[in-house]
Design a protein around this nucleic acid. Sequence first.
RNA 1: GGGCGAGUAGCUCAGUUGGUUAGAGCGCCUGCCUUACACGCAGGAUGUCGGGGGUUCGAGUCCCUCCUCGCCCACCA
Length: 926
Amino acid sequence: MTKTEEPHDLPAQYDPGQTERAVYERWVDAGVFAADEKRSNRNGGDREPFVVIMPPPNVTAVLHMGHGLNNTVQDVIVRWRRMAGDETLWVPGTDHAGIATQNIVEKQLAAEGKTKSDLGRDAFIERTVAFVEETGGEILRQLRAIGASADWNRTAYTFSPELSGAVREAFVQLHERGLIYRGHRVIHWCPRCLTSLSDEEAEHNEETGNLYTILYEVADRADGVSHLAVATTRPETMLGDVALAVHPDDERYNQLVGREVLIPITNIRIPIIADEYVDPAFGTGIVKITPAHDPNDFEVGRRHKLPMPVIMAPNGTMTNGADADERVPPDLLGIDRFEARERIVRSLEKTKQLHSVKPHQHAVRHCYRCDTVVEPRLSDQWFVKMQPLAKPALEAVRDGTTRILPERWEAVYVHWLENIRDWNISRQLWWGHRIPVWYCDKCDKQIVSRTDVAACESCGGSVRRDEDVLDTWFSSWLFPISTLGWPDKSAAPLVAFYPTDDLITAPEILFFWVSRMIMAGYAFMGAAPFHTVYLHGTVRDMNHVKMSKSLGNGIDPLDVVNSYGADALRYTVIAGMGMGADLMLDHRDLERSFAPGRNFATKLWNIGRFLLTNVGTSPVRSVDELGDDELTLADQWILGRLNATIIEADAALGPPRPAKGKWRREERYSGLRLSEFAEAARRFVWNDLADWYLETTKGRIGASGSDGEVARAILTHVFDYALRLLHPIMPFITETLWQRLPFPVAADRCEFLATAPWPIGEPASTTEKDAIARFDIVREAVSAVRQIRSDYAIAPGKSIDVVVQSRANAPLFSDHARLIGQLSRSSVHVGAPKSDAAAAHSLVSDGSEIIVALGGIVDVGKECGKLRGELEQLEMQLDTLSKRLRNEGFISRAPANVVESERRKEEEWIKRRGQLAAKVKTLCGG
RNA sequence: GGGCGAGUAGCUCAGUUGGUUAGAGCGCCUGCCUUACACGCAGGAUGUCGGGGGUUCGAGUCCCUCCUCGCCCACCA
């Protein structure tokens, strides 16, 4: 048949580039992804809502495989629920990403030889806004290319006027509730970004540094003690020392408490104090106290009311800051902290006050945005009091209101919340939500306000606004509520769609984002924002190194889409990723990496071509009107397998939501096994439908008469449902094929597969189970013949005679001899074989024997060897089995059904042994 | 320092509450352009389930121990 004669317009090769974009546009134009508040049953509608909030990528981000994986997972779940009939909403958005974005713009300025101070605050913000307008949101456009079915009408941005309003409201509310306060303490400071960081933003890094032991000279020498040795990893902070501390019970030193020592180099006198914080077992048991540059020392300093001199500038150079007087010697002023460390060490060497230098393993904190070593720094910052917020968030996970998958992350979450510390939310940046606090110049009043303040409310004096902005995460933690209309609690989207359902993200932001969202959900809405947190793995290369653009081991998802299609990308990612496991891909060999998806897409395409070529385009009969007596065994089998596959798929996907608000024990950690779902669907399509059922229809389907019509109807129905099951994973190709199916005229069909009803599985009936079992016997017979053909290298074209000597199922083989012959390219007879001719034998599990006449084809000797080997192996296995069945313990302790099945097996094997032995005797002569 | 996870075929990984002869994809070998598909079809090979010990009638699965990786958390200077 030439191409023009084919009754369809499918090209021989699937070309994703040509079809995907057009299909996507049709979905968008038809509003397939748009959710409607009015249809939610929380808002008078008749549908259960299903809502997913997209983790907003940074507005400046460019799509990488991490986004590809994250959004594919979300889209699979969202498309599944949409087909299942939920009012499904997937809210997309971007994050203004304070530090990250500001850093990029600053870098651009630097390239122009400018700094942000050259522009000034307003001009800098203007420039950043322009930059975001120009390039921002590119990633959301890219997400469309991988098929993301988000409701683009609701695209959110953490810096939009609406969301900014929510941020300000949240700040003011928490302040009113006494949960936001201004604190003077040592925080993490990035000397490069010139801002404070939260504890989470200062990442630990295990490093080998030095532990320097420095000798402090005791002032007013008495009792022979002239020097005290003090260990430190940061000698440069010595300049800010205000005391040495020892443990009050440390008998080596406690008589020195109250005496004074001299700081080396500067010879400033500082006291020796006693504090329980000191661990006598570490180092020398004496600690230098630098309150302004170490959080612990700060606490000690507070307890002992010590001064807190600042000896470092914000950019990490040495300076005489607050309360420092002339502590930093002139020759160190303006010197970088690490250079200063070197110089001080050299000076100490000269004065013989450096006792020792030892390599030392310790954790050093780095800025999560620029990797600069963070400096502890005394400053005024805004904090959120976290313990009250953490309480309900902790309870939510403990009582099953919110579950975290995989289960192991729940312990991590609980541990973090139990030990939570206050959240530093102020940043010394320009790009971000400015803190809504004003200070009166005259009376020093502090005004926290929902609206901008022009003058002091008590004295009428002029006011100035706090210079700082809020941590980016202070806007993202509101995302599930702010995107739906909060603070307007009666906003239709909030009523219809809050709480949401699943949150799908990477474990890296469990603390940054997920747990804070849960806290915000309780703080502002009194309810958890979602009932399921699904934490997926990381995309890595073949050396298990996390993919990243800077390392050059990344994969651009758009390259994959261009080469193999979005469906190939999606299938590969979903099928290859176990629950919570990392995904390894080879960035140097995209073809190999994405072969599973590409191959499967091609397979689907070709099944579609076969179907449309052979079934044609005229409507088929509806399966509902087919009588049982019209169905062949193969028809019954494939329908049974379809039903079983639907059940498997549903089991893998699990319950979409907790039945009564809280997860029941048995359901809590079930579901969302997306790779199992993918595998069940693939197995059905490829191994059942394509490999077997489709082959059985060849010859039937072209024939005129009712059986051909039945085959057309079943094939179409089964493929229709297979496409439905696969649509969440491979939306484009399934929609494209589905649009062309010759549906029954009466079928109540919808316009798009994307909104077609999700298949409903039914418990398998006995006739169904029986059909599956019987067709499996037929398949076994076919495989047996194929194996013999292969074993004896019988040319594919060569016709052979096969005899089935049926022990149990005579009618089965009589009825299907022709089919077995067709599938195994042989001529099959049922009955007795011609006597004593050389033949190959194979046993079917129902006890029947497949006999292939080998006269003139192969040598008998080889066959005998094979038979003997088979017999020997069977005897060994039978021996083990029989021993077990004679074991008292097994009989008494094993479940009855296990014992029973083992008994049956033994009988079967004994029968086989008899048959095999007889064969060996007749063929090989004893 | 504390906690968690992993170690199963050459590679990436599944293996549900212990229960037939441990699976899949990719790769590999053999034979096939069988009129949907060579991105395919048919057949095949490959595993002391990290080591050792234990519980059990029965262990990849449970317990102990050791080894090797990885991740998270952490104020020992």
